[in-house]
Every structure is written in structure tokens, then in C-alpha cells.
Design a protein around this nucleic acid. Structure first.
Lengths: 336, 336
DNA sequence: TTTAGTGACTAATGCGCATTAGGTTGACGC
DNA sequence: GCGTCAACCTAATGCGCATTAGTCACTAAA
């Protein structure tokens, strides 16, 4: 800016005014300064900006997963891609970190906030007993929780969520209509808010219809556990006629496991995947799946965060209920 | 720091000396200052640090992919996870951005460097005619190219690379030994350095052995193109007896397509995937695949970058040649 | 003619840290 | 008794920007 000032024959303050659209300079001078800045290829130093009270112009995103479980998963990359799209428009950076567990994640938030590294964060994988909302409240760190149900105990946090309960209800309804009475839900990680929400809903729906042989089994989302659980439930005395998998990886692994045991899909057992991706079209038959727009999910979350950074108040936004794409893996229950 | 100085009864400079391990304070004072800093939960402001010449303590990573092609891909998340591991130890942040194309990527580098947002960058997906090395040289932005062959025209850039040529040679050798003479390589994006390297090597190996019916076909890495190309080559007059896929997604899609056409694997056609992941164990038979440690790849790259930031000179590091994991998808060529 | 007001600008300050230039004390050698 | 040096500490400066407090000239109102 010193250079610009010299070249344009004005003071540094004038340059600052001109470039930031503040009053105090004539239109003529402003334009001249802009020209010079352009010629010199000037860009404001984020460090200096941050230091003089403008914030870090950066948003944080922490993924708490062990490296091994960072496997085949299209969701996060798509989510991040959507987030980026919105942040990039505003020239906000995305600081990304992978950690082992939620405790580490909390430590990262503390550090980032203390170091003034970020202006806000996006939180994923909310849990039933989650220390993060309390921490974020305590720190006063602006945040958007992605995937959690609205939580009135933390009025400072925004929430972007999908109606898992509604989706689960519609899936169960669809299976029930096809004659399915014995359903196993091969769920994801226990403790994750949406896992528990789906499990609760399934139980409620089963209760409402008087279905005794409906249950959920939690896993670690891996193909290995997906296959193992599938094998276990199909080898039982009264195997289920429908399986609901919490992600595509397990669904595909489960179909393979079922085939090995001599179960054909969908004749013997129907399969629904809670995640839609190319994977679902790589097995025979193609998998019926709940499809959602992960990119849009990310965009919505990022927009909420920018609104928060602009001084808006927190709120809960619901994205559209995932839509069930019927493919070849669901059919009328055997004997129905 | 002002607070710390007051609480400890010393000057701000003394606090700075104490906390940064510089001489000029007694061991006793240093310890006292440390205590106070600890109690107050002090963390240096990265902005202020950056402003006083310490750099941004941040590394940049840009992924130039259209959102649609950010599909099922375990490689990048694992790579990033490995990168993080090393960066986290040094408290370096990772600034992450997804853009449409290489031109945008270049713009991001320019902006980041001008804004002093990053101290260095990690570059992925090097291409045959790549504008990025020249740009990085011009800017003087420390960088590590991941996956490119060493390039003596850019002595300022470090390179971390795998020996694709060697791997391809060994795969071809293995297939040749099994009696395969007609081989099709279903490659990734044309223009990517490693795609071209693999194609060149395949051609050379074929020439050396006098194999006329060996060729490469480029794709966009998607399951759709993988399947389409597979169908096309298998429906030809003299279908290949072995297929080499540049990633796991295409390999799996290809196996499905082959099955539809009545080709059984490996009896009619052998299949090798250049990427190993859970996917390769989700189809029957399990896919033989070239396995590499993507996390370690990332760690190595990050270490090279930190070395560069510490003032080390650029160099080219080769990570171990991917190892072929023989599973059920490769066998003796029909008629051999 | 004086006063208040306004538009266009400059000077000065501070953000939080690192660093360099000083300052004070006490020990040591001559 | 004086100069020298080392150890320990304080004061002052600058990084690049935003912002607040002036300064100056010129115009409209009293």
C-alpha cells in the first residue's frame, strides 16, 4: 500500500479508503488508486487484515476419523466441494484437519480460536453425548452443526440437517407395503446422532405396526462389518426379508455376503442403501438407495455459517428429505 | 503477552524471549513466564506472527476437479490424511480448496501467495503440459509436486513420485508369463503425467515383446466410461484376454460389464486394478490390484514440503513401487 | 465579515508479536 | 579506581493494514 500511495501521489490512508470503498476520497482519486493497485498486482495481506480486526477470513473443518476408516466414501469430498463453492465466492479459506477422535477435535477448536486462525467452524458427525456444542458455546466460536437435529440448548449454534426420521419412516412404509415383516437395519457408528435417530424411528415404526422382528445392529461403517453382520443375521433361524444399510459400502458388501450364503436379491432379501453413489450401480442388481445432494448440503451449511459471520442469528435449516431411488434390489417379500 | 508480562512482572520483550526459547532471560524467569502463559491459556496469534515475518504457518492444497468427478475415491482422503499427520506435528495448517480446472488452480496459488496466506503448496495431478511448475517457479512459492516424474527444468520444486513405469512393466511381465498376448489398458485422464507415463511404458513393453494387440484407451476415471470402454473392447473381433484399469472404480464397473457380456473373470479375461481399496474386495472374484500406501505417500510429500520450508533444497523422492496383490481376478490366459 | 459546515485529504495510532538497540548491575582483571 | 564484559532485562521499532483524529480549502448560511 505504501508503494501504491507513492505511485498515486496520495497518502496510505487515502489508498485504504479508496480500496475499501470508504468515503473520504474523490471518485477520481479512487479510480486512480484502483488502477495503480491493479498494475502493481496488490493483494491485501490476510495477516495484516486479521491483525487489524477483520477476522481471519478462514473457516475451519475438522474430520474426526481414524485413517483406516477414511475409506471409500464419496460423501465428505462432495460435502467439502459444496462448502468450498460458497466460501470461494466470499474469498474465505477452508482450514482442514483430520484428527483421531472428538477430544482431539475439541483441542483443535480451542487452538484455532485462541490463535485467531478461524472465524468459524463447520462441525460434522454430531453425537448423542457430544462435548462439542458446549465447547463452541463456551468459546463463542461461530459454528454450524451439519447433520444434527436442532438443539434448543445451544441457541448460538446453527444446524443444517436432513430429516432421517421421516426418511426412515418412508422406507419402512415402503418395505411394509411390499410385504416385509422381518427387517434388519444395519446401522452405522453407535453414538452418532443420526444413527440413533434412525434406530429410534425404526423401533417406533415397528412398534406402531406391531412388528416384533425388526431391529437395528450398529457397525463401524466398514465393508468388513457390513458383510459380517449380514452373514450373522441371514444365518439365524428366521432371517430377515429386508435389509437397510446405513451406507453404500456396507450395502454392497452385504449383497456379496448374501449371495455367498445363497440368498438372491431381491427374491430372498430386499436391500436398501442409505447412501447413493456410483457404488450402488456397480453390483447386480443395482441397489435401491436413499439419494441426497451432498454438495447442496455443504452449500447450505456454508451459507448458514457466512450468515452467522455476518452477524446473523443462529437457526436450524432442514434440507430436503433424502429421496428413495427404486432400483432392482427391492421387491415383494418372499411368501407375501 | 501484555497480560503475561504484567502478571509475571517483566517486560513484553522478556515474555517473548522466554516463550520462544531465545537467550536474554534467566532460566528462572523463563519458567515463571511459562507458568503464567500456561495459566492464562495463551496462544500466539498466527496473524501477528505472520505479520512479523514468521510466515503463515499454513500449507495449501488445491484439488482441480469438477464436482461430479469427486466420486468414490479413497485416494485423496487418504493422501490428505497422511499429509495432515505430518503437518499437525508442526502445527501447520492445511488450507484446502476445490476448483474447476488448472487455470483456476493457478489463480488460487497467485492469490494465496500474494495474500501471504500460505508458506508453500502441495500440487497433485501433474500433467504433461502443465502451467503450474512454471508459475510456482515464477512466484517462488515453495512446492512439492505429488505424482510427477522428476523434472530438471524446475530445480526449485520437490517431487514425490511412484515408479509407474516400473510397476507397469512388472504387471505386463506378469500377464505375459500367464500367457496373455492381447492386453488393453483402460487408462485415466489423458494429459495427466502418470497416465501418459503408463501408456508409454505399456507401448514400450509391448514393442519389446513384439505384441501387436496391446493398447491403451483413456477415460475420465468414471465407472460409466470404465464400463463403456470395457464393453467396446470385449465386443471387438479379437477381444483382449487381460484388462488393466487405472483405478478401482473402473475395474469394478468393468468386471460387471464383462459379466453381462458373458465373459467370466478370470477364465475369459484377467483383470488388474491400479488402485487397491475395499472396492476390490467387494466383487467376485476379488480383484488383483496394485497396492500402495496413500497415507505414506502424503506423509512423504508433507515431509518434503516442511524440509523445503526449513530452507532445505528441493529434491525428488521416490516412494516404493506399488506392489501387485494377486487375488482371484488374474489367471492363465485362455488357450495359453 | 464571521461562522458553521463539508469534502478531500494527511498524520498518527494500534492490532500482537519478533527483534534490535539500549540500559543497568555485578563480577573480574589490571 | 577504572574499564571491560557478560548476564539480564527494558524500550523502541516495524510488519501491513484499518481507523480515528486532525488539517486545509472552499462554500453556504448568518
Amino acid at each position: 500500500m505504501k508503494d501504491i500511495a507513492r505511485h498515486a501521489g496520495v497518502s496510505q490512508s487515502a489508498v485504504s479508503f479508496a480500496l475499501n470503498g470508504r468515503s473520504g476520497v474523490s471518485e477520481e482519486t479512487r479510480e486512480r488508486v484502483r488502477q495503480v493497485a491493479e498494475e502493481l498486482g496488490w493483494r491485501p495481506s490476510t495477516a495484516a487484515r486479521a491483525l487489524s480486526g477483520e477476522g481471519a477470513a478462514t473457516v475451519g473443518f475438522v474430520l474426526a476419523r481414524r485413517a483406516e476408516t477414511l475409506g471409500v466414501d464419496s460423501f465428505f469430498l462432495q460435502l467439502v466441494s459444496g462448502i468450498q463453492e460458497v466460501l470461494a465466492e466470499r474469498h474465505l479459506g477452508l482450514l482442514f484437519q483430520v484428527v483421531e477422535d472428538v477430544a482431539d477435535e475439541c483441542a483443535v477448536y480451542r487452538r484455532w480460536w485462541a490463535e485467531h486462525r478461524v472465524d468459524g467452524v463447520l462441525v460434522v458427525d454430531p453425537r448423542t453425548a457430544d462435548p462439542r456444542p458446549d465447547l463452541l458455546d463456551e468459546l463463542g466460536l461461530p459454528a454450524v452443526v451439519i447433520g444434527g437435529a436442532p438443539d434448543e440448548r445451544h441457541p448460538g449454534l446453527s444446524t443444517v440437517w436432513a430429516d432421517d426420521a421421516g426418511a426412515m419412516a418412508s422406507v419402512v412404509d415402503g418395505l411394509y407395503t411390499l410385504g416385509h415383516r422381518r427387517i434388519v437395519h444395519i446401522a452405522g457408528l453407535p453414538g452418532l446422532a443420526h444413527t440413533e435417530r434412525r434406530i429410534r424411528t425404526l423401533r417406533a415404526e415397528a412398534g406402531r405396526r406391531g412388528l416384533a422382528e425388526v431391529r437395528s445392529v450398529t457397525t463401524d461403517y466398514s465393508d468388513a462389518e457390513g458383510a459380517a453382520v449380514t452373514r450373522r443375521v441371514l444365518e439365524g433361524p428366521t432371517p430377515p426379508t429386508a435389509l437397510i444399510y446405513d451406507n453404500d459400502v456396507m450395502a454392497v458388501a452385504g449383497v456379496a455376503a448374501a449371495a455367498e450364503l445363497g440368498f438372491s436379491v431381491p427374491a430372498d432379501v430386499s436391500v436398501v442403501s442409505w447412501e447413493d453413489s456410483a457404488l450402488c450401480r456397480m453390483v447386480k442388481p443395482w441397489l435401491s438407495a436413499l439419494s441426497r445432494d451432498s454438495g447442496e448440503f455443504g452449500r447450505t451449511a456454508a451459507r448458514e455459517l457466512t450468515a452467522l459471520l455476518d452477524g446473523g442469528s443462529a437457526r436450524a435449516v432442514r434440507v430436503p428429505v433424502p429421496r428413495l431411488v427404486e432400483r432392482g434390489s427391492t421387491g415383494v417379500a418372499r411368501g407375501a
